[in-house]
Amino acid sequence: MKTENSRPAARGTHHGGTVPAPEAEPAGANAVPRSRRRGKRVLGVLVAGVLLAGGTAFGTTLPDPTSSEVYRAVADAKAGAESERDSLRSDYDSLKSDYETLQGGIADKEAKVQARETEVGKAEAAVKSAEAAVKKREEAVTAAEKQKAANTVSDGTWTVGKDIGAGTYRATADVGSSCYWGIYETGSNGGNIMENDLPGGGRPSVALSAGQDFKSSRCGTWNRQ
């Protein structure tokens, strides 16, 4: 008997034969068509084959990069640069050591120079002090000599209070027989004799006051007492 829901199996002919009907696809929304699953499997096989072939090719045909001339040239250049770097570093360390040594020597020399300058300064101060003392003595001697000169009277005519100071004068040595001294009134030009003498020997002395002229002849020098 034939019902409405029964469906005859599909059949056909292909080159004189029959083609079996396609299998039923799985039901459901996430179902993957069979043809797509078959394509993925084929693609996976091809990729695996390519990778296997590529790995074999790389392993058998590519040379070792460390054995190439370029690699060796780069390695040699690197080694040369490192050697030059080490040499420069050694030179730098040596120069730095020399510099530090020189700096230490300079500091030591500067300290010695400073100490020497201090000693020189002290010596200069001592010299200046000695020079000042000598100058003071010289000034004292000069003043004494001037004072002595002011208190010393030689041959000639002198106005007391102008040329010589008032006071008592005495011959510095024994006089001879030709010695003459005279005291005159100032301004009389020897006309007004107040006192005179020809001592003839010994060390005579005279008392002189302002307003008088004193004359000494062949008596040597007189010192104020």
Rank of each mutant, 00 (worst) to 15 (best):
C219I: 04
G104T: 06
S217W: 02
E139R: 08
K40E: 14
G190P: 00
R137I: 09
G201V: 13
E138A: 08
G200A: 06
A24R: 09
G12Y: 06
L43H: 14
V141F: 10
S87E: 13
K136S: 04
G105Q: 12
G49Q: 01
V120A: 08
E145P: 13
Q225N: 00
K2G: 05
D64R: 04
V120D: 04
E84W: 14
V47G: 11
G200L: 13
Q147I: 08
G104H: 07
G182A: 15
L43E: 15
E185A: 10
V160F: 02
Y180R: 07
G167R: 04
G44W: 15
S83T: 09
Y92W: 10
R137Y: 06
S87Y: 11
G190D: 03
T3P: 02
M1R: 00
S94M: 05
T56M: 07
A27K: 11
W222V: 02
N196T: 08
S6V: 15
Q103K: 03
R41H: 12
V42T: 06
G176N: 00
Q225Y: 07
A166I: 01
W181G: 01
T221N: 08
G28H: 09
G121W: 06
S90E: 10
T56I: 14
C179N: 02
R116V: 13
D93L: 10
V141L: 12
R37T: 15
W181F: 03
E145I: 15
E138G: 08
P20N: 09
I106N: 07
K136E: 03
G176K: 01
G187Q: 06
V120S: 05
P33E: 15
E138R: 10
E84Y: 10
G220F: 06
N5G: 11
A150D: 15
S67M: 05
P33F: 13
T152Q: 07
T56K: 00
E185Q: 14
P22G: 09
A133E: 04
E84L: 12
S154C: 05
T186K: 09
I193H: 14
A140M: 11
I183R: 00
A57P: 13
L43G: 11
T168M: 08
I183A: 00
T3R: 04
P33V: 15
A133P: 02
S90I: 05
D163E: 06
D174V: 03
P63V: 05
W222L: 02
V153I: 10
L43T: 14
V50L: 06
